[in-house]
């Protein structure tokens, strides 16, 4: 077993452990912090796959911006812990775990048995995945999808504002009606 494989296995173990921590923790804030650790670990794995720009975007956008949004909403709502309800999920939980095992076996079969021994050739890596190459691809071949993402983000911004403002508009309308009466 060479050094690369050992390094990968350490990173993979860290990623799986942090994902399990997110799954099992009852407190949503700790779950979010575990997920940030998981994203950072996967970012390091991107570095080993000669994708430095993807790795940095992962850390800034995912571990930075998106998870801050999560933490902000959790703290805003004070919803880090659910009150203990009646355990209506007991049987569904067993079914879910069984189905997850089936999915894992299937995915493992297709990815490990059907694709054995496809090694990444380190000699070929060289200049692959530099920021310049990504920029050229993004602004030449992928310019149309790149522009369309701006529409998606605009729709998301408008949608988020509308969803959180509806109640206020209704309340303003109601008080206006009362004043008229």
């Amino acid at each position: 077993m060479n050094l690369d494989t050992v390094f990968f296995l350490i990173l993979a173990a860290a990623a799986v452990i942090t994902a399990a921590g997110m799954l099992l923790n009852r407190n949503a804030i700790y779950a979010a912090l575990f997920l940030i650790l998981n994203f950072a670990t996967v970012g390091i794995i991107y570095f080993t796959l000669s994708a430095p720009f993807v790795a940095l975007t992962q850390v800034t956008v995912y571990a930075g911006a998106i998870m801050v949004l999560f933490l902000f909403v959790i703290m805003l709502l004070g919803a880090e812990k659910l009150p203990y309800g009646e355990g209506s999920l007991r049987t569904q939980r067993l079914v879910a775990i069984g189905l997850a095992v089936v999915l894992l076996v299937e995915a493992g079969y297709f990815m490990l048995v059907k694709q054995p021994g496809l090694f990444l050739n380190p000699a070929q890596a060289g200049e692959f995945g530099t920021v310049e190459q990504i920029g050229r691809a993004l602004f030449n071949i992928y310019i149309l999808p790149f522009e369309i993402t701006s529409l998606i983000l605009l729709a998301a911004v408008v949608g988020a504002i509308m969803l959180t403002r509806i109640e206020k508009i209704q309340r303003a309308g109601q008080t206006g009606g009362e004043e008229q009466r």
Partner: peptide, 8 residues
């Protein structure tokens, strides 16, 4: 020898 892509 590098890491097999199947590990990822």
């Amino acid at each position: 020898m590098a890491v097999p892509v199947a590990y990822y």
